[in-house]
Design a protein around this nucleic acid. Sequence first.
DNA 1: CTCCAGGAGTGTA
DNA 2: TACACTCATGGA
Length: 209
Amino acid sequence: MIKDIYRILTREFEDLNSDWWPADSAFERVVGAILVQQTRWESVEKVLAVLKKRGLLTPKAMSSVSLEELEELVRPVGFYRQKARYLKGVASYFSANPEKATFSLPADRLRREMLSLDGIGKETADAILLYAADKPKFVVDAYATRMLGCLGVKGGYEQIQEKFGRALGEDLHAYKRYHAFIVEHGKRYCNRKKCGECAVARYMAGENV
DNA sequence: CTCCAGGAGTGTA
DNA sequence: TACACTCATGGA
């Protein structure tokens, strides 16, 4: 079923290429992963542009800026006080441990390291693993949970993640594209108004799509 | 006006 | 383990 959905979404988003999550550095992706929590990406882009213009998209610079200034800069993304605090903590971590910034640790250990940081939960940790460290880990976001729930599949984070993991194996590119597909698909269809009006729902209804 | 977005931390049972 | 609550701006 997971692979069938992947095939359907691949056809739905033929034009979606690999720069779905644009960034000049891995650290910029880490910052973006935190800023985008419960927030629209359009707001994150504006903040990232300002941070970049000020030269703050490096661990050293971001860990050095004052908390008050960082709060004002990230305010447009919402939850700005905690996110500013999270960013400073993460920046300090990478600044104090430059060797960690290469993400050369094994995936499972890197995941534990990320989860130990304040502000990085399961989804953000996996987003960092996949898009910053190039590890084949599936990112289970609200859309993925919603979509499977709509199809009658329920389960916790790891349970859902394993379903995708068994279907995708070690195909890093597939993990990246699949998550992007689900997000874009979810924005269109996985809401109260349009739930069920998509090709995935038609597939589950038994139609040939 | 209401609703909610690519979550996470904390407290309670 | 399983929820409820809180954090917050900005766009539709």
